[in-house]
Nucleic acid binder design. Structure first.
Lengths: 239, 239
DNA sequence: AAAGGTCCGATTGGATCCAATCTTGTATAG
DNA sequence: CTATACAAGATTGGATCCAATCGGACCTTT
């Protein structure tokens, strides 16, 4: 129950996530993993927060077993931290780790973007443009985050192997919960990206992506820095 | 039992792994995950092979539950593939995916290596030199793979955040099982690496690492290609 | 004889129960 | 008054049992 009560207000959103996730998964653990992943991305479960198996089990109205499986998976994905006999906490990233994550994103995503630009067909481009056009109207809605994930997944899947795409999506998932506040900036990011892709120059597109990611990382670092000095100086993240 | 019998001969090695893993883990699932990870890296469990929960449970003489948790974790790490109600198989990488994995390794590891070169102290260097000197004599022994893993982990931990190190180790773990045959080439790789690090020039060290990884990747691709044409043409990896 | 459907065995997913470990509060000794 | 040791409660790890799903064999039908 701590997992539920600790969320100040968006508790309703959490229940929405749980209830709307019913018919779309083959097993319960997949359902749980997906919902908790989304909840962490949306900031409903905040970094450092303790997630008790019993609380989640009551929330989903299932036993603790699929919860455990889901947490194990999220642990390997880097979203939660599991300590033996002490339970799970939402992983908190230090300023330096966020910075590193963005550096790695720049390296991998520019590598992948070049391939995408080289491989994309007019049909695929049109399809992506439609998806991008649908995104703004879903903003602030419940499926927003998932829709954006889906867009980038199909985008990078063009010209890249599943292994590369999964790495990209994992990095994105890890930083997502820190970027939820910058929605105003990122509303037409997709259009900007597609504009560069349309030109067909891999170097140009890669250069734009790098500067864009660096910009976001900078703003993020600024925000985290000023927040941490407001809450008083404390080591990156007490364990 | 299929999991045991299918290994033609190194079956004994598998039992060695299981028996020698007794006192060093806090929970059974950690033990299982570690042993299976090593077994996949060593080629005892071969790509595409089916791993039954019951077989592994009998092998470790435990219930199926810690097996399931361990498999879930290895699935998220990319070493096995989990299909609902159909069990786990050792993930088989296509030629293109191996290539991509090495490209990503080049990007991330050169990034990390520059930081290591810049941050390393004489004491740390001496410590690593000792570890590297111990490696050749443990070759072909049982703890060889783990010792090498440990070396690279401590190496990259110098000057880099845990998040970066864990990404590197994950990539390494995924390609390890395809590189077990090239031990002759990689016996003094560590010394070569340390030589470059000793010079203190990040660019030089990064350039060497890139060419080295490219060389290994090339040999790997050649080997996989000729093996697949010997076994007859077959799609990358049937599911 | 080939194609489709149905039934049964095998394997995995989920629930309940028990054991082990950690945490917290309390009491006692210094 | 502080610090350490002990003990009770809570939470997680592991085992056993039951249910759901998948695969293949056999049979029926055209």
């Amino acid at each position: 129950m701590t997992a539920v009560d600790s969320a100040p207000n968006p508790d309703t959103t959490l229940h929405q996530l749980v209830t709307t996730s019913h018919g779309q998964f083959r097993t319960i653990e997949e359902r749980v993993a997906s919902v908790v992943r989304s909840a962490i991305a949306a900031g409903i479960f905040q970094p450092g927060e303790h997630l008790s198996q019993e609380g989640l089990a009551q929330l989903f109205e299932v036993s603790r077993m699929p919860i455990r499986s889901a947490l194990r998976q999220l642990d390997a994905e880097g979203l939660v931290e599991l300590h033996a006999h002490r339970g799970a906490t939402v992983r908190a990233l230090s300023l330096e780790e966020i910075s590193d994550l963005y550096e790695m994103r720049i390296l991998i995503e520019t590598f992948a973007l070049r391939k995408t630009v080289a491989a994309i067909t007019p049909d695929q481009f049109e399809n992506l443009a439609i998806l991008a056009a649908e995104l703004p109207e879903r903003a602030d809605q419940e499926g927003w985050l998932e829709a954006r994930r889906s867009f980038y997944r199909t985008f990078y899947s063009i010209g890249n192997t599943p292994r590369v795409v999964s790495t990209i999506m994992q990095f994105r998932a890890e930083v997502n919960r820190y970027t939820t506040g910058l929605a105003d900036v990122r509303l037409h990011t997709h259009d900007d990206l597609l504009d560069r892709v349309k030109l067909g120059d891999p170097d140009l597109a890669a250069a734009w992506l790098e500067s864009h990611l660096r910009e976001v990382a900078g703003e993020l670092k600024r925000r985290v820095a000023q927040r941490s000095e407001k809450e008083g100086p404390q080591p990156p993240a007490g364990r």
